[in-house]
Amino acid sequence: MGVVSFILGLPLAPVRGVISLGRVIQERVETEMRDPASVRRDLEAAEEAREAGEISSGEEARVQQEALDRMTGEPESPGAVKE
Rank of each mutant, 00 (worst) to 15 (best):
L43Q: 08
S38F: 07
E76M: 13
P14K: 02
L8P: 07
V39S: 03
E48A: 01
M1G: 15
V18Q: 15
G53M: 00
E30V: 08
R28E: 10
T31W: 04
P36C: 00
A37D: 08
T31L: 04
E74W: 08
Q64I: 11
I19E: 04
I7Y: 12
M33G: 06
G17P: 10
S20C: 11
Q65Y: 00
E66N: 11
V3S: 11
E60S: 06
P75E: 08
R41A: 05
L8D: 09
A13R: 09
R62Q: 12
E54G: 02
V81R: 15
K82F: 15
D35M: 11
L21M: 12
G73Q: 06
Q26N: 06
V29E: 01
R28A: 11
P75F: 06
A61K: 13
A80W: 14
P14Y: 03
L21C: 09
L8G: 08
I19K: 05
L12V: 04
G2Q: 14
L43F: 01
G9R: 05
A49T: 03
G17M: 04
S38M: 07
G9M: 05
R16C: 08
R50S: 01
V29L: 05
L43H: 04
F6H: 11
R41K: 07
T72S: 14
R40M: 07
A49C: 01
E74G: 01
R41F: 05
V3R: 13
L43Y: 04
A52C: 03
G9W: 00
E74Y: 09
R34W: 02
M33Y: 10
D42C: 13
E83T: 04
E27Y: 09
R16H: 08
E59V: 02
E83K: 05
E44D: 13
V3Y: 14
